[in-house]
């Protein structure tokens, strides 16, 4: 995987969203902007795919069937291999609700984008993370 990244020079972004159309749209935007993407439709798939490959950024939805965002977050933060992975929430949940739910406390969580999102805002956020 790292070799692949080194070869193409592309940064990898994992997109986790239960809505296929959102998943498709976000990956379309990212790929058009020269990112490599990993798609996951729920928490289980997300964690499963993280075992195989470690992305630079995870775009994580809130309110998905299966594992809750908190559970996913816990799994990621306690996994030493994933310590460098940054998480950006992209969700229709109001940021203050997420804050109240304690989802924004982890240091790996670096940004919060509310749906419907602006393309520019999304790209800026990822750009900021990967260039750090």
């Amino acid at each position: 995987m790292e070799t692949e990244n080194e070869i193409t020079g592309k940064k990898t972004v994992m997109v986790v969203d239960d809505e296929q159309d959102v998943l498709l749209s976000v990956t379309q935007i990212l790929e058009a902007n020269n990112y490599r993407t990993i798609k996951a439709s729920d928490g289980y798939e997300c964690l499963e795919k993280l075992k195989e490959e470690i992305p630079e950024v995870i775009l994580l939805d809130i309110m998905m069937p299966g594992l809750t965002s908190r559970e996913i977050l816990e799994e990621i933060t306690k996994d030493g291999r994933l310590a460098k992975v940054k998480i950006i929430f992209i969700t229709a949940v109001h940021s203050l609700e997420a804050e109240e739910a304690g989802l924004l406390n982890a240091s790996q969580v670096v940004d919060y984008i509310e749906k419907p999102f602006s393309m520019k805002r999304l790209l800026d956020a990822i750009e900021k993370v990967v260039t750090e």
Binding site: E19, D21, V22, S25, V26, I29, A32, A92, K115, F117
Partner: peptide
């Protein structure tokens, strides 16, 4: 907001 999101994203693209 969920259906609005891909609509908005696709339109922006």
């Amino acid at each position: 907001k969920t259906p609005l999101t891909p609509v908005n994203a696709q339109l922006q693209m």
